[in-house]
């Protein structure tokens, strides 16, 4: 019984520790005025009203959503067929792929942006300063998560038996893939998409170094308003946090469905 209490206390302490910055930001964003006192004087939602009427915030948020959705669409179209081909036709490539997808994960974004900035500043592909370069970079961010999840799903099903059965029933390979394999990948794919979505919304390094204010994303906007009211920035942080909260909630729910299936 004493041990039980100890474990509960430790877990409670862990949760409290992790919750402090979140709760403080929430309180600060709802405080009407909070000067040099420990607790706020009054509460109001005016910071949120001000934020959600700020055209610059709305456009930055829109940019972030647009880039993230475009990236995830591109990643799905490119990665799903690639993983399938690797598993169905070239299983020996899986090892190489696992190494390749670790690269964007292992190399810090600051390092790759050094090369990106020089390669695509001008020349045949002048991408720096445009949202296109972010879509490319974000593809590499989403890649490890999506590849791993899809590879796990494919490993878990009898891919060759399924394809053989579909072939026997007269389906072509693309048709068999779309009608038999793809539905089995859906849950895992959605979970990894939601997870990647929340990562991409929080991405700052590429966005700041490669594009900056030329196509302002949420994080760059957040950084640029750091000197204005702390209540206002707190309202941005909380809005962003709640948004990613919903995304991760979807991701974990889908993940659970996946493990139950």
């Amino acid at each position: 019984m004493r041990a039980d209490l100890y474990h509960r206390l430790v877990v409670a302490a862990l949760v409290a520790l992790l919750a402090v910055p979140v709760l403080a930001t929430l309180a600060y964003s709802l405080a009407g005025n909070w000067g040099a006192t420990i607790l706020p004087d009054s509460f109001s939602v005016r910071w949120y009203l001000q934020l959600w009427h700020d055209p610059r915030f709305l456009s930055a948020f829109g940019h972030s959503l647009l880039i993230s959705v475009a990236t995830l669409l591109l990643s799905t179209l490119v990665i799903v067929p690639a993983v399938f081909v690797v598993f169905y036709r070239f299983p020996a490539l899986d090892r190489t792929m696992n190494l390749l997808i670790l690269l964007p994960f292992a190399v810090p974004p600051v390092v790759s942006s050094v090369g990106l900035l020089q390669l695509y500043a001008d020349g045949p592909l002048p991408l720096v300063g445009t949202p296109w370069i972010l879509i490319g970079c974000y593809f590499t961010i989403a890649l490890p998560f999506m590849y791993r999840t899809l590879a796990d799903s494919l490993r878990g099903m009898n891919l060759h038996d399924l394809m053989d059965a579909a072939h026997l029933l007269g389906a072509s390979t693309p048709r068999a893939f779309l009608l038999v394999v793809a539905p089995n990948l859906r849950t895992g794919l959605m979970a990894s998409l939601f997870l990647s979505f929340s990562f991409l919304l929080g991405e700052f390094v590429f966005a700041n170094i490669l594009v900056g204010t030329r196509y302002e994303t949420l994080q760059v906007y957040l950084y640029s308003v750091r000197m204005t009211s702390g209540h206002f920035t707190s309202a941005i942080v909380m809005s962003y946090f709640v948004f990613t909260l919903v995304l991760t909630w979807f991701a974990t729910r889908l993940g659970k469905q996946e493990s139950q299936a």
Partner: peptide, 23 residues
């Protein structure tokens, strides 16, 4: 608690810096 931990792992980068300034 695992779900909560997962969510707080999203609080990083610029928003985290701001949250720490407030605390």
């Amino acid at each position: 608690v695992v779900a909560f931990t997962n969510m707080t792992s999203n609080l990083a980068g610029v928003p985290l810096a701001f949250a720490f300034v407030i605390v």
